[in-house]
Design a protein around this nucleic acid. Structure first.
Lengths: 349, 349
DNA sequence: CTGTTAGCGCCTTCAG
DNA sequence: CTGAAGGCGCTAACAG
């Protein structure tokens, strides 16, 4: 058995209360008592039990991240959500800021055979969590409904119509509109689009941006130039092959995210096309890998790491307000993605 | 306040004991009582508090993963350990298997300003953890000493001389030896090596494999062909530039891992070399990205995901044995990495 | 300045 | 088959 506060108290002939307060830095403890306690604790290797403390304080000091996984994005052997560097960078941001706020981060990994939802419910109901970060919102997202109903504080990366919760959204519509206009300006008239799964909010958003861009450039929308991936490399690859097989293939392809674009580049290469000369390809996210592809990928950058950190701060504030019974004013932020031009969109018109 | 077992008991005029047992499936409860309890619980949205249960049972049902970070691999703004897909895949495996074993996984992210070690100690001392998975062992690893001393069960990815703990090791030495022999067989006489940070066990191992390979192929070891990276893309890039600037540059470069190799490929391209024709480059890990580089990367594959799952199982067993006071026989596994030949090592002799 | 008291929510003897 | 009692390790009122 590990050493408890009682052991320390006994050793010093003090009450456990005094030990507790000495260690927690209360000022109603004699300085030399505090010293003795500190020394004894250090020497005996005592550290307060996190569980007991949480229990007493009725807080978990833990937040959760519920990744949304499109079903096709996972196979039986591996959890592919983790394979997206964008998500990864996001998680790194969450973890870093959580640590700084003295919170733990639990990441939901829905394993094969265990529903994401089951797991999530268990967390919430078991009060393992003080709050949740949600990403990739779906159009009608059960997570939002569930969390709202159970009064669990949460913040979102992305937003929904009429959202009353805090969120940070990167403006995919405006981003892709600008991207299309840029490509049109370079002389592209046949611009294709590879999207993501249907239920996703961001899919609607980015697709709308694509169409708005076409309109703004005076280009007509061609349904045949639309393909659907699943936001993974392989999905992008398959979708691109489809577009490239058209009798009149697009001269430029926009992809819903960078992973899709990387898959699409591969498809183009296999068809004997040189990306950035015979065809233009662009993505969205600004993952580090996009710099290292051959050729480097044009993309819309969103600061995943910083967004994640900001979200955790917002969540921490929300939790704090909730504890004090204060009402929380949700902070809602809309960011513009930064257009990063690289060689993948050099030629191809 | 969330609904507790007392609320349920009160509602049904039962004791909390009975409710507890009914829900936990004990057989000394009348069937219809059980039914009533179940219904009430479901209706009231009761789920046992995880914290309280843990407290009572004196177990955290949580395992930790302590990533080892070479100092140069992190900068002030971002946690780069997460940027390595190999680590990622490993984490995915840990998470999946942990969930399956009804364990939570906490991943140590040492934030800027907070020492990895501090964090780690807090976990262990606060008994947040029932066990730990350790990776990238250092030659004289304080984590191993610390965990052993505190009697915290742990398993390692990789091993140390005379290890008494369970581990799974991928044989880097034999792997790189085979790789060098393969390259020598293709006519390469000037083979360079980009390693990782010095303190790492795997660095010794893989470097030894490189040297053994040279010996076996009758090639002499040339210190100038050795460069040091930090297992990141940027580290590989810088180290490769150095090797390529030599008056007699190597015709082939082995890299301690795939990320390093990807950086090296970039350096080669920038120097006007076509990888797979003017120069051969190979890595180690078998990350998914290695398939998608241009050209695809030759590498030694290690099944990160499966290793991680197996490690969690071993750890769970170890924890279980410990609870029962049984002695645990450490399982120690040595795997051979699989040589995957791709176009990055096609020519260049 | 220090100690006593009273739980946080649950599970597990031990008695009925 | 069910209930009462005790306590996991800690902290926060409230008394001295």
């Amino acid at each position: 058995m590990a050493v408890t506060i009682r052991d320390v108290a006994k050793r010093l002939n003090l009450s456990i209360t005094t030990v507790s307060r000495a260690l927690d830095g209360y000022d109603d403890v004699a300085e030399d008592t505090r010293e003795r306690v500190r020394n004894a604790a250090a020497q005996m290797g005592y550290a307060p039990s996190h569980m007991a403390r949480q229990m007493r304080r009725q807080r978990a000091d833990t937040i959760g991240f519920a990744i949304s996984l499109p079903p096709t994005a996972r196979d039986n052997t591996n959890n592919r959500a983790f394979a997206d560097p964008f998500v990864l960078e996001f998680i790194a941001g969450l973890g870093d800021e959580a640590t700084q706020c003295h919170l733990d981060l639990i990441v939901s990994t829905a394993t094969p055979g265990m529903e994401e939802e089951t797991l999530f419910r268990r967390w919430v109901q078991g009060r393992r969590l003080d709050g949740v970060v949600v990403n990739r919102l779906r159009k009608d997202d059960w997570r939002v409904a569930y969390l709202t109903q159970n009064r669990v504080p949460f913040v979102a990366s992305g937003h929904l119509q009429g959202a009353t919760f805090p969120f940070i959204e990167v403006d995919g519509k405006s981003g892709f509109k600008r991207m299309v206009q840029y490509l049109a300006g370079k002389g592209h008239a046949r611009i294709g689009y590879i999207g993501g799964p249907d239920g996703l909010r961001l899919q609607d958003d980015r697709l709308a941006g694509y169409r708005a861009g076409l309109r703004a450039a005076g280009l007509s929308f061609n349904k045949a130039f639309l393909a659907q991936g699943d936001m993974t490399r392989n999905g992008g690859y398959a979708a691109a092959l489809q577009l490239l097989a058209l009798p009149q293939r697009p001269s430029a392809i926009l992809c819903v995210n960078d992973m899709t674009a990387i898959g699409a580049m591969r498809a183009a290469r296999e068809r004997g096309l040189v990306v950035g000369r015979d065809i233009a390809i662009a993505g969205f996210d600004g993952i580090a890998d996009a710099e290292h592809t051959e050729p480097p990928l044009t993309t819309l950058n969103q600061p995943a790491y910083d967004i994640a950190r900001a979200l955790v701060q917002m969540l921490a504030q929300m939790i704090e307000d909730g504890r004090r019974g204060q009402s929380h004013v949700p902070k809602q932020v809309l960011l513009q993605p930064e257009l990063i031009l690289r060689q993948s969109t050099e030629g191809g018109n």
